[in-house]
Amino acid sequence: MTRLLPYPWLSLGLALTWLLLNAPLTPGSAVLALLVGLAVPAVMRALRPPAVRVRAPGTLVRLAGLVVYDMVRSNIDVARIILGLRRGERRTGFVTIPLDLRDPFGLAALSIILTGTPGTLWVQYDSQSGSLLLHVLDETGGDEWVRRVKDRYERPLMTIFS
């Protein structure tokens, strides 16, 4: 198992990508997809990428749903800000968030989530102190954004990539 498939998820992803690019499904493209899925990870082994361990698939699905919902909502929020449809004072500013998440894959996932929801911008992360500098388009004041990032995204990510 480990010798033939050192990175099973990478193999699966590559084979699926090949099939998507070469639709419709024919026996020939299925064989080629299998070959790509087996050969490329074997070459990748020379680079020794660290293997990803994903736990708690239920949490993963719930987080994905939450991110899609947040993406749509914050897209509409930012569109309203740009078009000037929102009344009242708006403040922008930088927010520093102390992160407990240390896993590189978890941090990468967090950066994708924060970029995917417009209105938050990842400016800088310091791996020594684990603090993250965010720019927020609609700063509400207080530590609302800190709590939002930590409760909504960081906790499930720590469960998934623990």
């Binding site: 897209n75 930012v78 569109a79 740009i82 922008t92 995917g116 209105g119 911008l121 720019h135 388009l137």
Partner: peptide, 13 residues
Amino acid sequence: YERVHAPTLGATL
């Protein structure tokens, strides 16, 4: 820093 938020609209939804 405000403007950097803008293109993410096109890049996501």
